[in-house]
Deep mutational scan, measured.
Amino acid sequence: MPVRRGHVAPQNTFLDTIIRKFEGQSRKFIIANARVENCAVIYCNDGFCELCGYSRAEVMQRPCTCDFLHGPRTQRRAAAQIAQALLGAEERKVEIAFYRKDGSCFLCLVDVVPVKNEDGAVIMFILNFEVVMEKDMVGSPAHDTNHRGPPTSWLAPGRAKTFRLKLPALLALTARESSVRSGGAGGAGAPGAVVVDVDLTPAAPSSESLALDEVTAMDNHVAGLGPAEERRALVGPGSPPRSAPGQLPSPRAHSLNPDASGSSCSLARTRSRESCASVRRASSADDIEAMRAGVLPPPPRHASTGAMHPLRSGLLNSTSDSDLVRYRTISKIPQITLNFVDLKGDPFLASPTSDREIIAPKIKERTHNVTEKVTQVLSLGADVLPEYKLQAPRIHRWTILHYSPFKAVWDWLILLLVIYTAVFTPYSAAFLLKETEEGPPATECGYACQPLAVVDLIVDIMFIVDILINFRTTYVNANEEVVSHPGRIAVHYFKGWFLIDMVAAIPFDLLI
């Protein structure tokens, strides 16, 4: 008679799926529990143990900040960024110097990925580790590398530091407007667009060049630039800015003055950032001319202004700041037409079709709590990747769950009947059967004279019903998954307890 339990259901295979997918890609990662103190490590794979030199037993239950890997060259700011990422709910990448158990130093890129439950609360953290440099290539500990984003994938490793954006290309926007319009339909740009040429040739750093990471940081200074100062900065030398009595002219307006920039070969870094931020506020060169004239017309309804409409929906549905990093990277690809469009465009503009998908598509409701890094690593669709929660398995109709209350009560009843059979069957065979043979035949009273025979008949009927119930009862397979398919249940029961239950259900007393 089957006594099969499996009270692990309803099970959740999400954690096993993450481990299996990460292991298949030869990654070095740990999984931490966000619900406990210090976000203790609950799993670390073999790749991480080989990377740091510690065994799994030495890593388990330690804080996922990996303070046991810190050393003299470990930056405090990087460690603080990892700790801050564990307090938030967004994906974050941090470069930090770690030390192995043998004392060797290596520069590592740590990717902190939160995993949320159905309520939107962070319950786990996945920390992925990628070695960037070994100890002989690690720089000085005073050099802070965590304020910069990861290198873009479309640049060669040897040319990542030679990417320079020439400031004269930004200063000569109005001069290039006529050349853009003359391109017409034969050019790649839309009317009114501004073409910015980027020099990728390796050259020595000069005062006129600005690194790509500095251009990325310009967006942080746009908020500090007032509207009046932006307007004066875009007017140009024809209309000098008016300053109040006793007030000095704005240095932001002076930063885009061609006369002032041409007199000296070098520009201050602050002026460069502010000038680029001011130019980015204009949607095209037409807006710059309109600002000089004193009238700013409404933005025209053409394809170039609607190019950012799908980007707005993608940004609203993005799951991490990696989408913004990807957008900034692609927006700086050289030799393309940049349409400086305000994100607050007309909502009635139709979304044009684009061959290049900048932001990841909208994630469906079932995966809105899973970050983009987890979705990318697992390579699963929205119909396959579940949320991290207890999910009731989908069972067929008329199927009994093996952990249901009805099955528990039924098993206790069958257990009592088995005990009765084990006690009274030998007793009936030894004593009652002998008395029946010696006594007179009682054929007239039937079952009324033999109450134990009636009980034995009921017990046999219950055993037959138990066999039928076992054909529709779920079970737990070797992978700790609840199986509810009727065919698989029948095959599993035939290979197991079916023969024993059938022999126990045969009414031998009635056959004798």
Rank of each mutant, 00 (worst) to 15 (best):
V3E: 14
V3I: 08
R5N: 10
G6E: 13
G6V: 13
H7C: 07
A9N: 09
A9S: 11
A9Q: 15
N12C: 08
L15H: 04
D16K: 07
I18M: 12
E23N: 06
G24C: 09
S26P: 07
F29T: 01
I30H: 01
I30K: 01
I30V: 13
A32I: 01
N33C: 05
N33F: 01
A34V: 08
A34Y: 03
R35V: 13
E37M: 09
E37K: 07
C39R: 14
Y43L: 01
D46A: 10
D46E: 13
F48K: 01
C49S: 13
L51K: 01
C52P: 01
G53L: 05
Y54C: 01
S55M: 04
R56V: 01
A57Q: 15
E58W: 09
E58Y: 10
M60T: 01
Q61W: 08
R62Q: 13
D67Y: 03
L69E: 01
L69D: 01
G71N: 01
R77K: 07
A79E: 03
A80K: 10
I82N: 04
I82E: 01
I82M: 08
Q84G: 09
A85I: 01
G88K: 14
G88Q: 08
G88P: 01
A89R: 14
E90T: 08
R92W: 03
R92N: 15
K93G: 09
K93A: 13
A97D: 14
A97L: 14
F98D: 01
K101T: 01
K101V: 01
D102M: 01
D102I: 01
C105W: 15
F106A: 01
F106Q: 01
C108F: 01
L109V: 08
V112P: 01
V113L: 14
K116H: 14
N117A: 14
D119V: 09
G120Y: 06
V122K: 15
I123W: 11
F125C: 06
I126F: 07
L127Y: 01
F129P: 01
F129W: 01
V132L: 06
V132D: 15
V132T: 11
V132C: 15
E134L: 06
E134V: 06
E134P: 10
D136R: 12
G139T: 15
S140W: 14
A142P: 13
D144N: 15
T145H: 06
N146F: 15
N146S: 15
N146I: 13
H147S: 15
R148S: 14
G149R: 09
P150G: 15
L155I: 14
A156L: 14
G158S: 15
R159H: 08
A160G: 12
A160H: 05
A160D: 14
F163V: 06
K166H: 07
K166P: 05
A169L: 03
A169G: 15
A169D: 06
L171I: 05
T174H: 12
R176A: 05
R176K: 06
S178L: 04
S179L: 06
R181I: 13
G184Y: 07
G184W: 13
A185Y: 09
A185D: 14
G186P: 08
G186T: 07
G189P: 15
G189L: 15
G192K: 11
G192R: 01
A193P: 05
V194A: 06
V195M: 03
V195N: 01
V196W: 01
V196K: 04
V198Y: 05
P202S: 05
A203Y: 05
A204C: 05
A204T: 15
P205Q: 12
S207F: 06
E208P: 15
S209N: 14
S209Y: 15
S209V: 13
D213V: 05
V215K: 08
T216K: 07
A217R: 13
A217G: 13
D219G: 08
D219T: 05
V222Y: 15
G224K: 14
G224N: 06
L225G: 12
G226K: 05
P237V: 13
P237K: 14
S239K: 12
S239P: 07
P241E: 08
R242A: 10
R242D: 04
S243K: 03
A244L: 04
A244H: 14
A244Q: 14
P245N: 15
G246V: 14
G246A: 15
Q247Y: 14
L248Y: 04
L248F: 14
P249Y: 06
P251F: 03
R252M: 07
R252F: 09
S255Y: 05
L256V: 14
N257Q: 04
P258S: 13
D259E: 14
G262F: 04
S263N: 05
S263I: 04
C265V: 12
S266G: 11
R269G: 12
R273H: 09
E274G: 08
S275R: 11
V279N: 11
R280W: 09
R281Y: 15
R281K: 15
A282E: 12
S283M: 04
I288D: 13
E289N: 04
G294C: 09
L296E: 14
L296S: 05
P298I: 05
P300H: 15
P300A: 11
P300K: 07
H302G: 14
H302N: 11
A303L: 12
T305N: 05
T305D: 07
T305Y: 05
G306F: 07
A307V: 11
L311P: 07
L311F: 08
L315P: 12
L315N: 15
L316V: 07
S318A: 08
S318K: 09
T319H: 08
S320I: 14
S322E: 13
D323H: 14
D323V: 04
I330P: 14
S331K: 14
P334M: 01
I336R: 14
I336N: 07
L338N: 11
N339A: 05
N339S: 09
F340P: 09
V341A: 15
V341F: 04
V341R: 15
D342N: 07
P347Y: 08
A350L: 07
P352Q: 07
T353A: 14
S354T: 15
S354W: 15
R356W: 01
R356A: 05
E357Q: 07
I358R: 11
P361H: 09
K362Q: 07
K362F: 08
K364L: 14
E365M: 07
N369V: 07
V370W: 11
E372P: 05
V374D: 05
T375I: 09
T375D: 03
Q376P: 03
V377K: 03
G381S: 07
A382R: 13
A382M: 03
A382K: 12
V384F: 09
P386F: 05
P386Q: 01
